[in-house]
Amino acid sequence: MLSKKRKAYMVGMKAAMYLSTGLTAALVIFLVAYVFIKGIPHISWELLSTKPSYISGRIGILPDILNTLYIVLATLIFVIPLGVGAAIYLTEYAKNKKLVGMIEYAAETLSGIPSIIYGLVGMLFFCQFLGFKTSLLAGSLTLVIMNLPTVMRTTQESLKTVPQSYRDGAFGLGAGKWRVIRTVVLPGCVDGVITGCILSIGRILGESAALLFTAGFAHALNGIFEGLTSPGASLTVALYVYAKEQGEFGVAFAIAAILMILTLLINLSATLVSKHFAKKREL
């Protein structure tokens, strides 16, 4: 038989665990339900397909959707080659342990820096020093630095699963290092690049503080090349401006609901992709 004290301890700990888990679950359900209930009624075709008009006083978020899309594309185009290259250097070339340690420490440091600091440095470096002004391109380049560690890490993970014997085999047949990387190593990092892309897209969609001073708040409707060189608000920044500065809570909740749906999709695809790759690895 357990003593009274031990029984009380168990009951207390169990209660704390159930309560904490229940609270977390309730929180998630509340957040999702509240945002959907408040936001979905405000989503209309007109909202999604027009730009804000001062004449009719209506608000449309098409420019913000496009800006977000441009930022995602531009960031990925830069960050994937850079991140993959860094990962290949670490797994295939680097021999000096100290150097590897330094690079990994730098990557960890980058992932710990708050986005507001990225925004500030992005503004100083890309907008002012390199002369890109406040533009989607400056915003995207700032996000490239933010997402570099993510892509690097996921690629590194997938390169670890390329068997050493493949490389040895290729070297044995007389291939040079570059040829081995092209034919054996690069195909092996597809999994990592896809995972890295999904995680980065999630992070880019949710980012706001780093974009505020680098990409700006404009709602102009532009094509991709014109858009990249002019300022524009992403969905998150638009949400902030509509809620905090203009008190347009209906539009803000509509954007929040859209962001929530996108977050759900990103999480779902991340889970599916990791399951798929785990299965592939077992074969």
Partner: peptide, 16 residues
């Protein structure tokens, strides 16, 4: 659910 909580943009937390 926890991953979702991690993925929700901070402006959405701010709005709610």
């Amino acid at each position: 659910a926890v991953s979702l909580l991690a993925g929700i943009p901070s402006v959405v937390y701010g709005l709610v």
